[in-house]
Design a protein around this nucleic acid. Sequence first.
DNA 1: AGCATATATCTACATTTGTAGAGATACAAG
DNA 2: CTTGTATCTCTACAAATGTAGATATATGCT
Lengths: 124, 124
Amino acid sequence: MSLSDFELEVMQLFWVHKEASAPQIHKLIEQKRAVKYTTVKTIIDRLEKKHSLKRSRTEGRTIFYAPISEKQTVSTPLIKEFINKVFLGKSRPLAAHILEEEELTLEDIEYLETLLKERKKDLK
Amino acid sequence: MSLSDFELEVMQLFWVHKEASAPQIHKLIEQKRAVKYTTVKTIIDRLEKKHSLKRSRTEGRTIFYAPISEKQTVSTPLIKEFINKVFLGKSRPLAAHILEEEELTLEDIEYLETLLKERKKDLK
DNA sequence: AGCATATATCTACATTTGTAGAGATACAAG
DNA sequence: CTTGTATCTCTACAAATGTAGATATATGCT
């Protein structure tokens, strides 16, 4: 099942934190922008209904949730879809854009170079 | 103004064809999936209202449209946004995913290698 | 035990999006 | 010049999404 932007944002936090309660997630997001607790809780409820999150334990009346879907399982199809939508299915222009325009450290570049070297080796 | 998936799909066709009528766009999309003419026309109307398309000329009662927004102007922020949403703002993991997992020809790989070489040169 | 408060639950609502029908009408073909 | 048809215009609507209020209530503190 596909995730909305907000749902994905919340999932990202769960992937980082492994487990969290709605109040915790709310506090994290609130640091970036104004949002009411109930809004965040609604998103979490929807993620639970979609089986992306499960209740892991409770502490007092506070429910803790943990991710069911794994990050990679979610992001891989998103990448494919993005390439289709924005680059007519061709990965090279997206790769080129990133390598040319997006922020990369020297280490990033060198790492990516080794990936290409590997890839080339396997091709031949 | 942001574009919906369907709007973006239509814009892609305009970027390729430079100019087209609603019936033409409809026929193109219909080759991939069932969709009514009026649905496509609605999307084109919305794109016109958003100033992404303009009427370029008419032929009989058929209106031709041409893109106003350029492809790069639209895609660059989409990439940024995608990296933020899916990779917490870091481009390296997206680049790595593409270089490792997505389809690339030998030429693609060699081209990307030159980009990295350039990028490294400029960094140093 | 009583109470304040944090948390949960449930409901609501405007906007965006994909989808398309109904009806109007200009043009092409006879 | 009539008429069929392609195209346009206008309106509608359900689902998804972001947003949050109202209300209930379990807990922890005094």
